[in-house]
Write a protein that binds this DNA or RNA. Structure first.
Length: 415
RNA sequence: CGGGGAGUCGUAUAGUGGUAGUACGCGUGCUUUGGGAGCACGUAGUCCGAGUUCGAUUCUCGGCUCCCCGACCA
């Protein structure tokens, strides 16, 4: 893709409303555009990154046997009154009347919908377990959106719901999902860890959140540096100093909640009539779990923990492109060679952005650093005379001259 | 939802009760091209409404919007 034609306009100045690093860099790099408070467009560059994250999640979700579907964002009031949550969510849910006087809400979460769908299709213990997920825009009328993509009124989330005949089966799946989540975060290039937390409006039980350490976060997490025990401060108010597991010293960290897994029990299935007949012919409510990942929030978190003064440093699996070719100078041979290199890399299946613009070298380097594509390949009169390509990893400071073949290998190596 | 701050070209900012300036961007031309290059010309702005005033971008009031802190949440 030629950068001269690409729909992205980087900025040297930071928009004054952006305070947190991820917000600043995503705005300056033209990954996102703000429409209103807490409401953003994912521009072509941003959407590429988001799709990388989503695809990782899809692979891992499919890998544990769950199936993707897509539910509506528009929900009739009647289904929410069955669980009593129409009133519970007042204030947080966008609720309104349509022109014929029927009430609707924009979905902040989908337990009511998925449980109703499942209730109509699960009859026997033989139909269980089942796990269904979607990746979809959620709406929450946040009192205070903040920090760009970190907390919005409209955001994209992967929500998975599981259905089980027994608590043992649920427990097993809960751990399976936890492991999948940890793989997802690792592949996205963020170090997330599970912590004990509260269930909020979903359940009274202790739940498990996945936290990423960053000063831009809104949660405080207590972590035992000795054994790794961790809990959200909200559920650990009375044990400040000593770890309940090993007695070690506990430290506080500011974190962002990137995921959350819940044991829902049978509350929803009882209210919505989701039951099954067990081996003995007894009718029982289905045991449920729900598991969320904020994909746009993860995107911002990736930037929060992968950047330097010059810009973003994308982990290879979520980078918008794998290679950023820069041609320096206006020499026609340099441009031809750079174009040939782009064609060559593309034939190898490598995603490449080619900065063909007639800008000074400094400006191109600055833009490349800002955009944060993992591997930079420079073509100039200098490299041309040696028949080589200069490559530099975004995370490194040293550049080196290599052959095309070496460049292919470097581009295909995940790091 | 409580508290604080801010709205000036696309972006970042200056300034004034009397013709609104600078930088970047953008356009044209020329010169440049290994770390946001130079010259010239050009382009574009006072959030909305009311009030005070001969005159308001500036002062007053109301509204709207955005940001930050707090209470709540992927």
């Amino acid at each position: 893709m030629k950068q001269s034609l690409y729909f992205a306009k980087t900025r040297k100045e930071t928009p004054k409303d952006a305070q947190e690093i991820s917000h600043k860099l995503l705005m300056r790099g033209d990954y996102i555009d703000q429409l209103a408070s807490g409401i953003y467009t994912l521009l072509p560059l941003g959407l590429r990154v988001h799709q990388k994250i989503v695809n990782i999640i899809r692979e891992e979700m499919n890998g544990i046997g769950s199936q993707e579907l897509l539910m509506p964002a528009l929900h009739p009031k009647s289904i929410w009154t069955k669980t009593g949550r129409w009133n519970v969510y007042k204030g947080e849910m966008y609720q309104f009347e349509d022109k014929s006087g029927h009430w609707f809400g924009l979905g902040p979460t989908h337990e009511e919908i998925i449980t109703t769908i499942v209730a109509n299709r699960i009859n026997s213990f033989r139909d269980l377990p089942q796990a269904l997920y979607q990746i979809q825009t959620k709406f929450r009328d946040e009192a205070r959106p903040k920090a760009g993509l970190l907390r919005g009124k409209e955001f994209i989330m992967k929500d998975l719901y599981s259905f089980h005949a027994t608590k043992e089966d649920f427990d097993k799946f809960y751990e399976t999902v936890t492991e999948a989540y940890l793989r997802i975060f690792k592949r996205c290039g963020v170090d997330a860890f599970p912590v004990q937390a509260s269930g909020g409006a979903f359940t009274k039980e202790i739940t498990r959140e996945f936290m990423i350490k960053t000063g831009a976060g809104e949660d405080t997490t207590l972590i035992c540096d000795h054994c790794g025990w961790a809990a959200n401060k909200e559920v650990a108010e009375n044990l400040r100093k000593k770890c309940p597991k090993c007695g070690g010293e506990i430290k506080q960290y500011t974190t962002v909640e990137a995921g959350h897994v819940f044991h829902l029990g049978t509350g929803f299935s009882e209210k919505l009539g989701a039951s099954f007949i067990d081996e003995n012919g007894d009718k029982k409510p289905i045991i449920m779990g729900c598991y969320g990942l904020g994909t746009t929030r993860i995107m911002a978190s990736v930037v929060e923990v992968n950047n330097d003064k010059k810009g973003i440093i994308w982990p290879s699996e979520v980078a918008p492109f794998s290679v950023h070719i820069l041609s320096l100078g206006s020499d026609i041979k340099v441009k031809q060679e750079a174009q040939a290199l782009e064609d060559y890399l593309q034939k190898e299946g490598i995603e490449v952005l080619y900065d063909d613009r007639d800008l000074s070298a400094g400006e191109k380097f600055a833009d490349a650093d800002l955009l944060g594509i993992p591997l930079r390949a420079v073509i100039s009169e200098k490299t041309l005379s040696q028949g080589m390509v200069e490559i530099k990893y975004r995370k490194d400071t040293e550049a080196r001259l290599v052959t095309r073949g070496d460049l292919i290998n470097a581009a295909k190596t995940k790091n």
